[in-house]
Design a binder for these strands. Structure first.
Length: 603
RNA sequence: GGACCUGUAGUGCAGCCUGGAGUGCACGUCGGCCUGUCAAGCCGAAGGUCGCGGGUUCAAAUCCCGUCAGGUCCGCCA
């Protein structure tokens, strides 16, 4: 541990004291982790700081309690024979002849801090300042700081320049719901807190910054999850005169350095698959590659089947090794889950031994014809005790439902089982060639999958006007263990292509001008080809720390309903302030519910 | 907006299905004893709006309805 200069309160950190320095007089400060009294002649006080714990031996009783803040000066001594504690880093030594100064006392903490206790998250969040003393939070926050330092260093080494962009930006019509800030100087107008510095960084490219990065806070007023908070942090980058390969290279390099610096894992492997491959094999655009459990397209074997449930545009299956032992209830739950996820149903077939061969135990067994059975066997390479899960219907919907089931089964069978070692593995993958558009809106216009400035794939430009939904883009995601870590793209720098894309989106030039005028104007004055990326740092550090929720790597996170249990936020503001801002609150208005149109908003 | 899980002492839980006095466990807290403990030990004590509101019942922590809070997920997150 890196020793800092001594202060009045401290010559050393608790957890760093070792047998090497025995004999010296040291001063440590920290919190009382434990006190053990042995009558009036002897007491032990375990003092804790973020580096660890040191045992202080006090001759006589000492009036301290858990979480009192002490400064202790004592002689670093070897522990007597037979009293070494090998559970702590300082277990060979202790402080003797202690002078104890009580700096602060403490009430009994409402959340216990020892490693054997676990409190409910709501209690931890209400008393976050105590919870942060916990070694787990200390480790996570320090890991995060080290990650930021490592990424920042890597970006600077790669010629990037750190530029700060405004938090008070102008409202942008597309994308996530924005947090807004009322303007006092122009009553009735609002700033918006940025969903990301997307447009700002593109303007920096026009400005000749060449390579920009920022550890940027992004804000989106959308519902919260284990991996989503209102505000989150991204390593945001943008570079000029680059293509996809270059951008992925910058990020890969930074990522490899960070994983090496933080975990000591050198040169991690980052796989690469296209969006289409990912959807086909995993049913999601953020595949978890820690386990196989791939989706198989078995449509061709059931073209002329007589089984009603298999008559469909597509038939997709996953094979669960050893799944034949699932109970009936378990299988019913899977069917229920599939229906909940939007499938019409889910077929299951247990593979059971049948003499030398195998046969199926399934609700549809008696409807299966010889050639159906052959189809399953040939295409899926089955063996006894397997379980086959089948969904039929439209291709996209089928693989998506199966993909969701795959990920739930994968977590249970491969990550939380005895093979839990897998859990700490990091499987990074680039997902490339995302479609440019994702579905149609209510007026029948395509919807941007990424954002409207994403460059279409060079081979698909001709399809823009004819078959827009088939157009691939230059957008790519970075995925790790089933988490979307970030995304990026090459941007359109040609007015001609930009106009074509707007046209496909159903936006007239005038509308586009109204919405993104300042960006389009900027592009009139010499826009370099450029592209960029953003990695979600809350998610990255959670993965590195082995945490399932990003709340564990954020000092003061909010609950799922968007509350801060410690401060009580969101809170009310004074009537005075509201008047200054020209704001009036009306309980009759929709209050939190999604409002889909201007008409609805003012009805 | 929707589905599911959870809410009992400062903390973590059991009790709930099958209603019968706040019945209980562990940690912590407080007091006493204790000169080598280390999740110290031994003895004793205090500590409860069973989230909140309503209903059913002779009787509700327990059953029913509503509501609030926390969590997981769907929708949402260009």
């Amino acid at each position: 541990m890196q020793f800092k200069e001594a202060t009045k309160y401290r010559t050393n950190y608790c957890g760093t004291l070792s047998a090497e320095d025995v004999g010296s007089r040291v001063t440590v400060s920290g919190w009382v982790a434990k006190r053990r009294e042995h009558g009036e002649h002897l007491a032990f006080v375990d003092l804790r700081d973020y580096t660890g714990i040191i045992q202080c031996v006090v001759d006589g009783s000492v009036d301290v309690r858990s979480e009192y803040v002490l400064s202790v000066t004592g002689t670093l001594s070897k522990r007597p024979e037979g009293t070494v504690n090998d559970k702590i880093s300082t277990g060979e030594v202790e402080l003797t002849d202690c002078e104890v100064e009580i700096i602060s006392n403490s009430d009994t903490p409402p959340v216990p801090l020892d490693e054997y206790s676990y409190s409910e998250e709501s209690a931890r969040l209400k008393y976050r300042y105590i919870d942060i003393r916990n070694p787990r939070m200390q480790r996570n926050l320090r890991l995060r700081s080290a990650m930021n330092a490592s990424l920042r260093q890597s970006m600077i080494e790669q010629g990037f320049v750190e530029v700060e962009t405004p938090l008070l930006w102008t409202p942008t019509p597309e994308g996530a719901r924005e947090f807004v800030v009322p303007s006092r100087r122009q009553v009735g107008s609002f700033y918006a807190l940025p969903q990301s510095p997307q447009i700002a960084k593109q303007l920096l490219m026009v400005g000749g910054v060449d390579r920009y990065f920022q550890i940027a806070r992004c804000l989106r007023d959308e519902d919260l999850r284990a991996d989503r908070q209102f505000e989150f942090t991204q390593l945001d980058i943008e570079a000029s005169f680059v293509d996809e390969i270059d951008v992925m290279g910058f990020i890969s390099k930074a990522l490899k350095k960070t994983v090496s610096d933080l975990l000591g894992i050198e040169d991690i492997d980052i796989e690469k698959i296209t969006w289409l491959e990912s959807m086909r094999s995993y049913g999601v655009d953020k595949p978890d590659l820690r386990y196989d459990l791939k989706i198989h397209d078995i449509s061709e074997y059931f073209k002329d089947t007589e089984v009603n449930a298999l008559k469909a545009e597509s038939v997709q299956a996953i094979v669960v090794k050893g799944g034949a032992e699932f109970s009936r209830k378990r299988l019913d739950d899977l069917v229920k889950r599939a229906i909940e996820l939007g499938a019409k149903g889910l077929l299951w077939l247990k593979v059971v031994p049948d003499g030398e061969s195998i046969s199926f135990d399934s609700p549809i067994s008696k409807f299966l014809k010889e050639k159906d059975i052959l189809g399953f066997k040939e295409s899926l390479n089955l063996s006894a005790s397997d379980l086959v899960l089948v969904i039929s219907g439209q291709w996209r919907a089928s693989v998506e439902v199966l993909g969701a089931i795959r990920s739930e089964l994968g977590k249970e069978l491969y990550l939380n089982s005895e093979a839990k070692g897998n859990n700490r593995e990091l499987k990074f993958v680039w997902v490339t060639e995302f479609p440019l558009f994702d579905g149609l809106d209510d007026s029948g216009n395509p919807i941007s999958a990424h954002h409207p400035f994403t460059m279409p794939h060079s081979q698909d430009l001709d399809l823009l006007e004819t078959e827009p939904l088939k157009v691939r883009s230059s957008a790519y995601d970075l995925v790790c263990n089933g988490w979307e870590l970030g995304s990026g793209s090459i941007r359109i720098h040609s007015r001609e292509i930009q106009e074509k894309v707007f046209k496909s989106l159903g936006l007239s030039i005038q509308e586009a001008q109204e919405k993104f005028g300042f960006l389009l104007d900027a592009f009139k004055y010499g826009a370099p080809p450029h592209g960029g990326f953003a990695i979600g740092l809350d998610r990255l550090v959670a993965l590195i720390a082995g945490e399932d929720s990003i709340r564990e790597v954020i000092a003061f996170p909010k609950t799922q309903s968007g509350a801060d249990l410690m401060t009580g936020a969101p809170g009310e503001i004074s009537g005075l302030l509201m008047r200054e801002l020209g704001i009036k609150f009306s309980k009759e208005l929709h209050g939190g519910q999604r409002v889909k149109s201007e008409k609805e908003a003012f009805s």
